[in-house]
Write a protein that binds this DNA or RNA. Sequence first.
DNA 1: CAAACACCATACGCACGCGTATTGACAAGC
DNA 2: GCTTGTCAATACGCGTGCGTATGGTGTTTG
Lengths: 194, 194
Amino acid sequence: MAKPQKIEKEKLTAADWERGALELIAEQGVNAVAVESLARRMGITKGSFYWHFPNRQALIEQSLQRWLEHDERNLQILMDAIEDPRERLILFFRRSTQVHQLTHDVYTALCFAPDHPLVQPVLEAVADRRTSYLANAFRQLGMADEAAAFRARLTYAAYVGYLQLMQQEQAPEPESPEFESYLEHVIKTLIPAV
Amino acid sequence: MAKPQKIEKEKLTAADWERGALELIAEQGVNAVAVESLARRMGITKGSFYWHFPNRQALIEQSLQRWLEHDERNLQILMDAIEDPRERLILFFRRSTQVHQLTHDVYTALCFAPDHPLVQPVLEAVADRRTSYLANAFRQLGMADEAAAFRARLTYAAYVGYLQLMQQEQAPEPESPEFESYLEHVIKTLIPAV
DNA sequence: CAAACACCATACGCACGCGTATTGACAAGC
DNA sequence: GCTTGTCAATACGCGTGCGTATGGTGTTTG
């Protein structure tokens, strides 16, 4: 073993821990983030964890912060990419399609822990962002300020509620034809005609 | 039953425990239902609890079952009381006003624990019930079967999502004038004109 | 080459929550 | 009056999960 290929060693960075935490959140919710189980999952013991982080709370905070920034960029890209506000709105709905996408699954998990003290501020920020994003699009479609704000809230609420129905498997699978019909109905109902 | 005033002894029945559990769920969520803390809250030790229930799970199951029946009656009363489907729909939205009402607060709490194995079937039943209630009303307003079902799902989703926004205090207080304006907007958007 | 540093393993103390076991108090029925 | 049944208090064992302490190994750096 003269030249140990560094494949094996693979020291973990704080970012690795954060990614692992986010995966756990996506799969099993915030409460499932336990130091020891996470460490096991990373193939390491918790002795290491407490070198990178002072405690569990710091891990969650930093992970959520990282996710928040990541989500920010995602939204920005979406906004820049598409000119037509109507198309942007439709794409917003379609985003619920992206199940088993880390960023999106984390969001779903967070939605179901709105009282968690660490989640609350994050969720608030995201709701603000998405709501104003929606309101903006509605205004561009010619709605008055107040109406646009209301419609945005309604749309956001419908989106979040749909996430829950999907969680209970009481909503059609995103790929199914029924989903497309439903989506069409939603679009017709919530997006004003051009 | 000749004379003994039963004021002092106050033995607890299983129903008392269930009520206590539901209060806890309403205030702090399903996970907050711990045997010992609940016992303390009832002014008693857990030694008694395990006489009435085999374990914690049974308590939660029976409490939820009791709540489910209670909610069933509530809905039934609502349906019987009001003839006009449009009025019924409006009342459905207004029910989100009933914060700090035990039955409703429990529902909110359950909505935020959809993955909990004991909550899942309950939530499913309620979602079914309310969705078909809504679909029925929409059909009575002249919508086709499929459209009514879609609109019902959308409406239910919007309702659940709004609960979350309220939880985050990002939605107007039910008594405020802004709430009335928003409600009006929702009605105009989701309920087809007569 | 020795000391310092970065990263990880092992082992412990502690709190909390579930469930059980044992005992006690108090009423009703034989 | 003594047994039986009902409800409650106390005390334990057990698992889990957090955080700490301490020691070890490899890599850097003076």
